[in-house]
């Protein structure tokens, strides 16, 4: 059985829109528009999309915060809203911009409170906390009130708080938003470690694609409340035609652009001293061999495809919604 199952999941909001000076009109906005998705135990799923695509709304429906307008969701075999408190025992949630912790209390007290809230035996609690203290370097601010923590410290606290009851599924909504580089690394390293252990399912929404590249094997892209891509990062690249590049620095300028089978020339830079080829069917070795016959190679480098670029292209691409083409939000 899948840990998370969604079938035809929908969420509509009615909003009042200003029409003219005084009149307001009711309008139905579909935040999530029929999502079917299954997530297996131990998977690490990156859930991305532009602002307002319905990422957080999906997460809130899966955690029992929001009632779906239609369709069904099961997490750990439970219905999120109807069996909210039972589900809460088995999942952990981190909302990047909202705190789970007690503002005026030291971090340590928040953890101890959560031990009571989740009814974790003291021994288990101590073991897990010790592990998080170690991996996330909590010791220096464990006795500081939460309101005095930096964002990075707080986020490390939030992660610990979400994991102390050893949840089967961890939902992370923008866990690295606003963090400095060092804290981002710490958070990612910790999550990667968690993923390697293999028994926690992880669902992550983010704007920072480096999170995804580092952590997730599976990527779900949504736009306008619909899934537009579901698969590995590699599959995304092949589907949207992003390729690895070979950058060759030559000693001399070639009189005419070289033609290499399976590796079309993309750009000529540095007055003809630098050539950029896209790898299609050719291998790097074939490109090097092909060039070596033409000129002296000074340097050669391989550039991995840029996921940001792919995703940006994906968001811009028109998506078929209900028969009418709608252009993705910038």
């Amino acid at each position: 059985m899948s840990v998370i199952e969604m079938s035809g999941l929908r969420k509509e909001f009615t909003v009042r829109v200003k029409v003219g000076r005084l009149r307001r009109e009711k309008r139905v906005v579909t935040a999530v528009d029929g999502i079917d998705l299954r997530v297996e135990r131990g998977e690490m799923l990156g859930y991305i999309g532009p602002n307002g695509a319905g990422k957080s709304t999906t997460l809130k429906m899966l955690t029992g915060v929001l009632m779906p307008s239609a369709g069904e969701a099961r997490v750990c075999g439970l219905r999120p809203v109807a069996e909210r408190t039972r589900l809460a025992m088995r999942i952990g949630v981190v909302f990047g911009q909202r705190s789970q912790l007690w503002w005026d209390l030291p971090l340590r007290d928040s953890f101890d409170l959560l031990r009571h809230v989740y009814r974790v035996p003291a021994g288990e609690h101590a073991t897990r906390l010790a592990r998080c203290r170690d991996l996330l370097d909590l010791d220096e601010f464990l006795d500081t009130p939460v309101r005095q923590l930096s964002l990075g410290q707080r986020m490390r606290g939030e992660l610990t708080a979400a994991l102390l009851h050893s949840p089967e599924v961890l939902f992370l909504d923008e866990p690295t938003i606003g963090l400095d580089v060092v804290s981002k690394q710490a958070v990612r390293g910790f999550l990667a470690e968690l993923g390697r252990a293999g028994d926690t399912t992880l669902v992550l929404t983010t704007h920072d694609l480096a999170d995804i590249e580092r952590l997730c094997h599976r990527l779900v892209v949504i736009d306008h409340g619909r899934v537009v891509h579901d698969g590995s990062i590699a599959a995304l690249h092949s589907r949207y035609g992003s390729r690895r590049m070979v950058v060759a620095e030559l000693d001399a300028v070639l009189s005419e652009p070289p033609e290499l089978p399976g590796a079309p020339l993309q750009r000529v830079e540095a007055d003809g001293h630098r050539l950029v080829f896209a790898l299609e069917s050719a291998t790097v070795a074939e490109v090097v061999a092909g060039l070596a016959g033409l000129a002296t190679l000074r340097d050669i480098s391989i550039v991995e495809p840029d996921i940001e670029e792919v995703v940006a292209r994906l968001y811009r691409a028109p998506v078929e919604v209900g028969g009418a083409a709608v252009t993705g939000a910038p």
Binding site: T63, V65, T85, R86, M89, S99, Q100
Partner: peptide
């Protein structure tokens, strides 16, 4: 507004 209500809803208590 502050999101405290969301935090409360994901805990295993009423």
């Amino acid at each position: 507004r502050t999101g405290l209500f969301d935090a409360v809803l994901v805990r295993p208590l009423a």
